[in-house]
């Protein structure tokens, strides 16, 4: 029989063994200096910036935060990935400073919540993206019109084979296998709005990959009749296993590319990516500097993360938006 005196040792033993190990390593952790701008660091600004929202935009914001922190080590930026909708939910509750978004804020459901909680904001463009419709390299079809996409993805679509799509530019008789993001995704919202004319409406019998667009890559690469859509960076990383369809928005076939998105010819699937800083957060010098930095260094940020940079015009407009919100 074990000595009873040893028992308490064990009782806390298991519990604390790890506790010690873990807590020991946080001695050097910085304790948050909540939103203060009076930091005595060499580089001026300090404080915390909480960003949450779209997982598509997150890599951009992370890159921006990293570059910004190199110059301003006293600023702590965190980036969450709750999705565009989840991000706005927290943003409008006043729980985050900046919300990442791959679609504009929803007038019907999100704007009223922000208004009710007194959260004022502006939409700031930070990058461009091309929603890319991809297929298997074996597929001879090169171009799809918006109408053809609607035939395939429409809410009442029953199509099960490529041969059922009307007016294709090549003969193809394979079973359609559809891959797309989950309904929480801003990408889903944008695509359904552009192709089916109504946000959030799409046929239900597709392979829903949720937030994992790499599953679309694997799925389409493995199915001759596969079709899927996602952000341009996923195509850029997989040009050897996938082909991107040119899109005909009414003015001829246009392949997704940096130029086509920037000059606006890749319609309707060229899209802007946004951040939504709140007016209150912009009163904090750190947040203001961070947002300006984000826009100024957009070329480096977009190229590091596989997105399409903004045009001069967009940069100027974003700066103006931030200035007016910060000043107002």
């Amino acid at each position: 029989m074990i000595s009873p005196k040893r028992l308490p040792i064990l009782g806390v033993g298991i519990a604390l063994a790890l506790g010690m190990a873990a807590c020991g390593s946080d001695d050097d952790a910085a304790t948050g200096s909540e939103g203060s701008s009076g930091g005595d660091g060499a580089s001026g600004v300090s404080g915390n910036i909480r960003v949450d929202g779209s997982s598509t935009v997150a890599p951009l914001t992370e890159a921006a935060a990293e570059l910004f922190q190199q110059e301003n080590p006293d600023v702590q930026v965190t980036v969450g990935t709750s999705g565009t909708g989840g991000g706005f939910e927290k943003f409008c509750a006043g729980e985050t400073d900046i919300s990442d978004a791959s679609r504009p804020i929803d007038d019907a459901e999100e704007v009223p919540v922000c208004k009710q909680n007194g959260v004022k904001y502006e939409e700031v463009v930070v990058a461009n993206d091309a929603l890319t419709v991809v297929g298997n390299p074996e597929n001879p079809v090169t171009c799809l019109t918006v109408d053809q996409l609607n035939q395939v993805w429409g809410p009442d679509s029953q199509l099960s084979s490529w041969s059922e799509i009307t007016d294709l530019d090549a003969e193809f008789d394979e079973e359609l296998q559809l891959f797309g993001p989950g309904t929480d995704s801003g990408t889903f919202d944008y695509f359904t709005d552009a192709v089916n004319g109504e946000e959030g409406v799409q046929r239900k019998d597709y392979n829903n990959v949720g937030e994992d667009d790499n599953a679309t890559v694997t799925g389409v690469a493995g199915a001759p009749g596969g079709m899927g859509y996602f952000g341009y960076s996923f195509f850029e990383e997989n040009t050897d296993t996938l082909k991107a369809f040119e899109i005909d928005g009414g003015d001829g076939c246009v392949a997704p590319s940096v130029e086509a998105v920037q000059d606006g010819s890749y319609t309707p699937l060229g899209r802007e990516l946004f951040i939504y800083p709140s007016e209150e957060a912009l009163q904090n010098e750190a947040v203001r500097e961070f947002v300006s930095f984000y826009i100024e260094n957009q070329e480096e940020i977009t190229s590091a993360t596989g997105f399409i940079p903004m045009t001069e015009e967009q940069v100027t407009k974003s700066h103006e938006t931030v200035d007016s919100l910060a000043g107002g």
Partner: peptide
């Protein structure tokens, strides 16, 4: 509230986030 991009060591009560 666990986030993805945190570059500093988190603290139990730190309001700046954790991963």
């Amino acid at each position: 509230g666990a986030t993805v991009f945190v570059t500093f060591d988190p603290t139990p009560l730190g309001a700046n986030g954790y991963s």
